[in-house]
């Protein structure tokens, strides 16, 4: 029985690896776009703008209050149906949009939290030296905020990898979907195949989580 398990494992591995590559590709795209959007929104939310900061806060609540799968279906079904032409995208783009927005909601919170954690005196010192808001942000506030932001960003990346498994339900052939397809070939080995899939995710996410802990410990030591 164990040799046949090994044979099954060897047989499905190429497909699973292809799925892993796809997972890495979409998560990379998601983190790039999501981080850019999150950085922009987070910088705005981290300061005291009268209308923009609460508006972004409301937007974040909406994102946090709905399941990612629902957001994915909205990107996949609802947005293309509104009649606006550039929203009529394919499943891969829909998945990327959903993942990017999901990532950006975390990044926004982390960036704004990091900016708020920089002592107010730093803003005052910079402004007293005749720096304007954007100079203060760029040279004084953001460099100090970054030390707090970076460890948490690594944690967001892990969440993103796990969320990519959900886009399997709209047919994207990432790792989870490849697992489902492989099971069609070997229906008796469901547990084995999903076990291998879980092990692949684990081997990727577990070191990343350890890196997060190490980064957080280092950041805490420096203060």
């Amino acid at each position: 029985m164990s040799t046949s398990a090994l044979q099954v494992a060897i047989s499905v591995m190429p497909a699973l690896m292809a799925g892993l590559v796809e997972t890495l590709k979409i998560s990379a795209a998601g983190i790039v776009v999501g981080s850019a959007l999150g950085l922009l929104l987070g910088v705005i939310r981290g300061q005291q703008f009268r209308y923009a900061s609460p508006a972004i806060g409301f937007y974040l609540h909406v994102l946090r209050g709905t399941p990612f799968l629902v957001q994915l279906y909205i990107a996949y079904f609802v947005l293309p149906s509104t009649g606006i032409s550039w929203l009529k995208w394919d499943s891969t783009t829909a998945a990327l949009v959903a993942l990017s927005i999901y990532t950006s909601s975390y990044v926004t919170e982390i960036v704004s939290g990091g900016i708020r954690a920089v002592p107010a005196g730093q803003w005052e010192g910079a402004m007293a030296c005749a720096m304007n808001r954007w100079q203060s942000l760029r040279y004084v506030i953001l460099p100090q905020a970054l030390k707090l932001i970076l460890p948490s960003l690594a944690g967001v990346y892990v969440n993103l990898i796990k969320a990519t498994s959900i886009v399997s339900v709209v047919g994207i052939t990432e790792l989870t979907r490849q697992g489902e397809i492989s099971i069609l070939r070997f229906p008796a080995d469901v547990l084995l195949i999903y076990g291998i899939v879980a092990a692949i995710y684990f081997s990727y996410c577990f070191p990343a989580l350890k890196a997060v802990e190490w980064l957080e410990r280092r950041a805490a030591r420096g203060s």
């Binding site: 005196g121 402004m127 007293a128 005749a130 304007n132 004084v140 460099p143």
Partner: peptide, 21 residues
């Protein structure tokens, strides 16, 4: 123009407010 104003006024704070980084 607040920047021009502050170029002509120097301020020293109770808690220094030096750029920590």
């Amino acid at each position: 123009n607040l920047q021009t104003l502050r170029m002509g006024v120097g301020m020293v704070f109770q808690h220094f407010n030096l750029f920590l980084h």
